[in-house]
């Protein structure tokens, strides 16, 4: 029995690594686990080389420093731009990949973050707007000097790609964690669902959760005001910029989690719903039949009807309220 157990665990392969400025981890089970994970990591590195805003030679950086108003992208980048524009239309502009000038201005990653002046914000706002991108296949026309920032969708896109790669390698059980964007493939090797925790947005402990969902074959993506932020004069300035105001979103949500087999969509919509706020966000998600977990500023936890039976609430002692 003991020997049998140790043989089974030999089919497990885990790799922890840093790419896209974020910690990542893939654990896969099965005969080809190591090959599948290794291939997945080179795929993620390739995406980083295309989409990174900080690497000078990435396609996004080259396009942002373009001469003139047109740029021809590779097929991979064009495909994600096209998808992103769809999500922008669907969310009435709450999700937008054209905020590069604004996200540079609000550099929440900086060691000494500054609050930009109102004039700087209104000037930067003029250089945004997904409607100023006109795409014809790989050819993109920029109607103003906007800069792309695809950080709100690329990790989700990478998750979907890793899912495809691992599936091609015949892997039926895996958990992919790309900087907090999670994809679970199949069930755990013991045939039980994966338990994915929802981060407590008001606790610095990285392991603190308000509860967890037990799921299989889906992705779980959270946007929150606690991931990258600074506090100045008692005000929390976080990294999710509202495309309408040009400043960190001030909706009534502190965390929005989307659960969907399309991680790309979950990534985009978690940002959009966080910005829309509870009322508008819930309406949008219900209309599109998408599962969610929202946490409001008053620490209320809202779980979509479909997901309630797989959600375990553990936030009571931490002051969260969950009304089934």
């Amino acid at each position: 029995m003991l020997l049998l157990n140790s043989c089974q665990s030999k089919n497990e392969y885990t790799n922890n690594f840093f790419t896209m400025d974020t910690p990542m981890s893939i654990t896969a089970y099965g005969k080809n686990a190591k090959e599948g994970v290794t291939k997945s990591i080179s795929y993620i590195n390739r995406l980083d080389g295309l989409f990174s805003k900080t690497l000078n030679q990435s396609e996004i950086s080259l396009a942002n420093n373009r001469d003139g108003s047109a740029y021809v992208f590779s097929e991979t980048v064009s495909a994600l731009i096209a998808k992103s524009l769809e999500y922008s239309k669907a969310t009435d502009g709450a999700f937008d990949i054209t905020l590069g000038t604004l996200t540079n201005l609000w550099d929440t990653k900086s060691e000494t973050p500054k609050i930009p002046s109102e004039k700087d914000i209104s000037d930067a706002l003029k250089l945004t707007g997904y409607k100023n991108l006109i795409q014809d296949k790989t050819h993109v026309l920029f109607k103003n000097a906007l800069k792309l920032d695809m950080g709100g969708v690329v990790k989700g896109y990478a998750c979907d790609g890793v899912y495809e790669i691992l599936s091609d390698y015949g892997i039926k059980s895996a958990i992919v964690n790309l900087g907090g964007n999670i994809y679970v493939i199949g069930e755990k090797p013991d045939k039980t669902p994966w338990n994915v925790g929802i981060k407590d947005p008001r606790n610095d402990d990285q392991n603190a959760i308000i509860g967890y969902i037990s799921v299989k074959d889906t992705s779980i993506v959270t946007s929150g005001d606690y991931q990258r932020y600074f506090i100045k004069d008692g005000i929390r300035y976080h990294h999710i910029i509202d495309p309408k105001t040009g400043s960190p979103s001030e909706s009534d949500l502190i965390s929005a989690t989307i659960i969907s087999p399309s991680s790309t969509m979950a990534d985009a919509f978690s940002t959009a719903v966080f910005i829309m706020g509870r009322e508008k966000g819930e309406k949008f998600l219900k209309e599109n039949n998408i599962d969610y977990i929202l946490i409001t500023k008053s620490k209320e936890v809202i779980v979509s009807e479909n997901l309630k039976s797989s959600f375990t609430f553990e936030g009571k002692e931490k002051g969260y309220i969950y009304d089934k």
Binding site: N181, I182, K188, N195, V196, I209, Y212
Partner: peptide, 10 residues
């Protein structure tokens, strides 16, 4: 090792 929670969405 695997605990009760397999990953945290964040």
């Amino acid at each position: 090792g695997g605990g009760k929670i397999d990953g945290i969405a964040n």
